[in-house]
Amino acid sequence: MTREQLRKTEGVIAMSLSTLAALIGLFWLVFILGDVLVHGIKALNLSLFINDPAPAGVEGGGLRNAFIGQLMITIFATLIGVPVGVLGGTFLAEYARGRKIARIISVLSDIMVSVPSIVIGTFIYAILVRQIGHFSGWAGAIALSIIMIPVVLRTTEDMLTLVPWTLREAAFALGAPYYKVIIQIVYRGAATGILTGILLSIARVAGETAPLLFTSFNNSFFSTNMNGPISSLTVTIFQYAMGPYDDWHAQAWAASLMITIFILFLTLLGRFIIKWRYKG
């Protein structure tokens, strides 16, 4: 083989391997989603959504309590996490723009995004569950919101920074105070971007299990009382998948399917909004 051929062959091999890598990535995605879909669809039925769990080992029953519980914990986490995150991001991008403190908080937030979620669960157990004296939906929602805040904060900061400075100056020239400029002009300009960040942060926490294990705990009955233990889909999946009953496994698959669809929907929605808004 000439040197030329050798070079070409090496190139072909490397390119084929890269293509193979992409196929491997796609293979895992299809494998996992397909598997969840196949198992999940088999187990989907109306009873799953309108009934509460049957006693252990008894066939039938549903996960109504877990669906509602999951929804409530996620909604309250969002209600706590989003305002704090958006306001925090505003400080970094506006009042503290270019200052050292903004850099530091920004970097720390990036680190917080990836801090093990189970550690946050233990933290909330120590400061809330044990102090108040019972497991509660609130503890779960707060644990999730702590995961959410840095995500929202960072996206908000990035999105506000993208809004051209001249826009603010124009408003200042009219004598508007800074807070009005931020709320009426900057937020408006960055709204879609922030919304995307919120959607992705909800997607990030909606599938969390580890921080809920010792905070919102679990409940075998239907409860919407955020002051007491509340059931969630993810903790129920953990319990049911580890359980010995085939019926439990089937319900865990169905719950997995629902939660996966929900999260992938949010993720895709977020992506499309970005694409649609920031294409040009």
């Binding site: 509602i68 929804l71 409530m72 909604i75 309250f76 969002t78 209600l79 019972h134 497991f135 409940n219 009955f221 409860s223 919407t224 009382n225 955020m226 007491g228 233990p229």
Partner: peptide, 20 residues
Amino acid sequence: ALAIALVLSFTNAEAAVTLN
């Protein structure tokens, strides 16, 4: 979201005794 959450958190008003 706030409305849904509030409605949900009060529908349990009739809630009986819960023992954990």
